[in-house]
Design a protein around this nucleic acid. Structure first.
Length: 844
RNA sequence: GCGAAAGUGGCGGAAUUGGCAGACGCGCCAGACUUAGGAUCUGGUCCCGCAAGGGGUGGGGGUUCGAGUCCCCCCUUUCGCACCA
């Protein structure tokens, strides 16, 4: 009667033991030769914000064993904090209670989910011990930046999510919607906000990408480059003739300026108010402005609009003078001109810019050509703008120059005559960190009626959250209503003062928390310089693609700030980045609204966590998305079943046989005689598999191929019964093979592996024992099979000894039966021999 | 429009530096054991062909003794950004 594999019983048994025995609690041994891994988020499952951080020094086997299933340091992971904080605060608002009550229940629920997946992570311990320290050092960073002018406050139009009741950073606005509420349109509000001056680092963020090329995925770098959005161009002042005042435009194509037929203003441009005030038709102009504003394509709330919405404009009645040609052009309002980019005003050159072309065509403005194609052909302006570089025409003194030359000279003229200058624009905007929420680090600023804005002295940190806040869910931060918190004393004049009530974006925490992991207990500085010196830059960082322009750009920014305040001596924190895929269903990311959610808890209850994990790892390489298939997981379940049966069958006979695998032994395990061919074959397979898995763990992480090889090995061992019965395979050799198999399996399916490992007579969990070394000699065949190609086609194969000489091999190949047929009567003009790979003849 | 990634059996995917295309698994077909099978085991499964053999990695060209892999052109899909002047 075969023993039955019962995943539920095995998994609950081992989870209890691991927890009791603190499986992963060992401190790392410093050893600079080993790789340092940092894993942000590895569970390829989108249903929860299951984020885990880890910095550890690994031996090879442990590295990837723990890669997915880690226990954190005694440090709060602030992103996880955020993931719990938001729903907790929403629940607090609903039930009029304190969010901490809900936080812990969320954490426990998440913990339950983690446990079912075989993860052990003590959030509660971490949060309880680490929050005040985190606040302290977030505030410390803020104050350092404030001193350097990198943190500033300004009234600003912000993106506001009506559902979160809070401000969002630009990066958190996705298609005009909140990043958390994908179908809630973001609206605009004017609020006093705190900003971090990330724009001061735009150029360095761009330049330092050189260091990242090769180590980071190209698409992440492309997304960041795009987000920073550098472009070189020229600022030019047009004079509004009726006001005698300049309006400044930004253009990357100053060479086309003789073709300018209008100046276009964004409806929110500061000059617009003045135009209204001066206009003889003020009433109708204001009406026009309002109409254009309402249709502005720059509104963040444009949800689900087509990619190219209708252009709308209105003539203001004013004209502007082109400083190059002296020509007068009309000043228009246009809904597609963005206030947020450049100067909020542009020159319209319809012949050479597609947007201007469409606009001018619609409103009947002229379309004069000033650039001719370089190839001497004619530009067809009836279909659209000619927007390439070319040679200038109808451009006064610049006629005949190439676009490049003209740009340089014309910018020079503007600078010489004082009506403009060359400039570089970035799309990147400063990082608004103010949040009107309870849940976050309080911004350490005090407002005094006498002294103004006063930073909290470092010695008074941390400013912590009051426990007695009320949660109304309306308007400003809940902190604003807590008198004990708000009312304070000015550190300068000791008079009555008020605290800032906004809290920080949690992305501030995540910008540097991975430094803290290297020494979570240091109390005199945010990070320990010695620990950072040892651990950084991180060799390998792993996380989802969704952080490409959020977390991954903020953390680069923070590192540069840390470099500037001499906290670190490098500018890029992460040498290599790996973005793993996620589980998708029906071709799309799972979401409740789409109803395509696969519940991991249910799957684990049905098949066991080992099976679920094994399937997720087997069905696709880690960087690729995995389409969930219910049929596919059956195969994983069958495999573990087979492993269990195959191993359990031999356990009785092997339990007392001694091997030294647990000490990293790599010998054949055979005593008293030479290996039989059957043993040789088994050992070959075992050590080949071990070599593949070992090497793959180090570099490629294609777990799917590792598991495929394990399946192969299990099939092989399963077929050994006749050889075992006839004594052709010694017990110690078989046991060693099974032990290596189980040890490799423990990386992917730890519960079943530990169960089998124990049944083989081991006390410690498999993950805690040595990783076996593969034996290069055993992983090599004595005989090689060499294919023979004739004129590039496969014509035969020969078996040769591993150490056979080239001329012998070639002679054998020529003699091979089939090859000989193809060679007879032909002249061999060329012979190619690739050592240990193939023989190739070219014949005529 | 700009940028990135990717196109291999019925499906997920292997093929690490140019060297036997389709490992491993799913599905399917046939069989065995069974009162039974949604359990287990055995064999088969890229296409054409009885066979010998031929063809085959989105399409077309090129380099090479040899191309899924390198180069050029084209097509398709996915993702990111997008009236950014």
């Amino acid at each position: 009667m075969d023993p039955q594999y019962n995943p539920q019983a095995i998994e609950s048994k081992w989870q209890k033991r691991w927890e009791a025995g603190h499986l992963f609690d060992a401190e790392p041994e410093p050893d600079s030769a080993r790789k340092k891994y940092y894993v942000l988020e590895m569970l390829p499952y989108p249903s929860g914000d299951i984020h885990m951080g880890h910095v550890r020094n690994y031996t090879l086997g442990d590295a990837l064993a723990r890669y997915k299933w880690m226990q954190g340091y005694n440090v709060l992971h602030p992103i996880g904090w955020d993931a719990f904080g938001l729903p907790a605060e929403n629940a607090a608002i609903k039930h009029q209670r304190h969010p901490s009550e809900f936080t812990f229940s969320f954490i426990d629920r998440m913990r339950g989910q983690l446990k079912r997946l075989g993860l052990s992570y003590d959030w509660r311990r971490e949060i309880a011990t680490c929050v005040p320290e985190y606040y302290r050092w977030n505030q410390w960073f803020f104050l350092r930046m404030y001193k350097r002018g990198l943190a500033y406050r300004k009234k600003s139009r912000v993106n506001w999510c009506p559902l979160c009741e809070t401000v969002l950073a630009n990066e958190q606005v996705v298609n005009g919607c909140c990043w958390r509420h994908e179908d809630t349109a973001v609206v605009e509000r004017d609020l006093e906000q705190w900003f971090l001056k990330i724009t001061a680092y735009a150029e360095r963020l761009l330049i330092d990408m050189k260091e990242l090329r090769g180590g980071w995925p190209e698409r992440v770098l492309a997304m960041q480059e795009n987000w920073i959005g550098k472009s070189k161009g020229t600022l030019v002042d047009f004079e509004i003739e009726q006001l005698g005042e300049p309006v400044r435009v930004f253009t990357t194509r100053v060479d086309t300026i003789y073709g300018c037929t209008a100046v276009l203003l964004a409806p929110g441009h500061p000059l617009v108010e003045k135009l209204i005030a001066t206009s003889p038709h003020a009433g109708s102009l204001r009406e026009k402005v309002e109409r254009i504003k309402a249709s502005s394509t720059a509104l963040p709330a444009r949800v689900g609009d087509e990619a190219n919405p209708e252009k709308l404009g209105a003539f203001t009645g004013f004209t502007a003078r082109n400083p190059y040609s002296g020509e007068s052009v009309p000043v228009w309002l246009a809904n597609f001109v963005l206030m947020e980019y450049g100067t909020g005003a542009v020159m319209a050159v319809p012949a050479h810019d597609q947007r201007d072309y469409e606009f001018c065509k619609q409103y009947g403005l002229p379309i004069p050509q000033v650039i001719a194609p370089l190839d001497g052909g004619a530009a067809d302006l009836s279909q659209g703008a000619f927007s390439e570089y070319g040679r200038l025409m109808n451009s006064g003194p610049y006629t005949g120059l190439t676009s490049e030359d003209a740009q340089a000279r014309m910018t020079g003229e503007a600078e010489a005559k004082g009506f403009g200058k060359g400039t570089t624009q970035y799309r990147l905007r400063d990082w608004g960190i103010s949040r009107q929420r309870y849940w976050g680090t309080p911004i350490p600023i005090i407002y005094c009626s006498k002294c103004g804005v006063v930073p909290v002295p470092e010695s008074d940190l941390p400013v912590v959250l009051p426990m007695n806040a009320r949660f109304t869910g309306r308007g400003a931060s809940p902190l604003a209503e807590v008198a004990d918190f708000v009312n304070t004393i000015c550190p300068k004049c000791r008079g009555a003062a008020r605290r800032e009530t906004d809290t920080m974006d949690t992305f501030v925490d995540s910008s540097w928390y991975f430094y803290r992991y290297t020494d979570p207990k240091i109390s005199t500085a945010p990070v320990s310089q010695a620990a950072v010196k040892y651990w950084f830059p991180v060799d390998q960082y792993i996380g989802g693609i969704e952080h490409a322009i959020l977390h991954l750009i903020y953390m680069r920014f923070f590192t540069k700030v840390m470099q500037d305040i001499n906290l670190v001596d490098f500018s890029e924190p992460v040498a290599r980045l790996f973005t793993q895929g996620m589980v998708i269903k029906d071709g799309a990311k799972m979401s409740k609204s789409k109803g395509n959610v696969v519940d991991p808890t249910q799957m684990c209850a049905r098949y066991g966590a080992d099976t679920v994990r094994l399937y997720m790892l087997f069905a696709a390489p880690p960087e690729r998305d995995l389409e969930w298939s219910d049929a596919g997981i059956e195969g994983a379940a069958r495999f573990l079943n087979r492993v269990y049966r195959v191993v359990a069958k031999h356990v009785g006979a092997l339990g007392t046989v001694q091997t030294r695998v647990s000490e990293g032994d790599s010998e054949s395990g055979i005593v008293g005689r030479e290996p039989t061919p059957e043993e040789r074959r088994l050992l070959l397979k075992v050590h080949r598999t071990l070599r593949h898995v070992s090497e793959d763990m180090e570099e490629r992480w294609h777990y799917n191929t590792d598991i495929a090889m394990l399946m192969d090995l299990v099939n092989e061992i399963g077929d050994l019964d006749p050889a075992i019965e006839t004594g052709k395979i010694q017990a110690s050799c078989l046991k060693m093979s099974i032990e290596v198999l189980v040890r490799m399996l423990s990386i992917f399916a730890p519960h079943i592996a530990d169960e089998l490992w124990e049944s083989l007579g081991h006390d410690e969990p498999a993950l805690k024992t040595f990783w076996p070394k593969y034996n290069a000699a055993l992983a090599q065949e004595d005989e090689l099979e060499i294919p023979i190609q004739i004129n590039g086609k496969l014509r035969g194969r020969i078996r040769v000894a591993r150490d056979a000489r080239e001329d012998d091999i070639v002679r054998m190949a020529q003699a091979e039966e089939k090859a000989a047929q193809y060679l007879s009567g032909k002249a061999v003009i060329k012979t190619v021999y690739v050592p240990q790979k193939l023989v190739s003849f070219v014949v005529k």
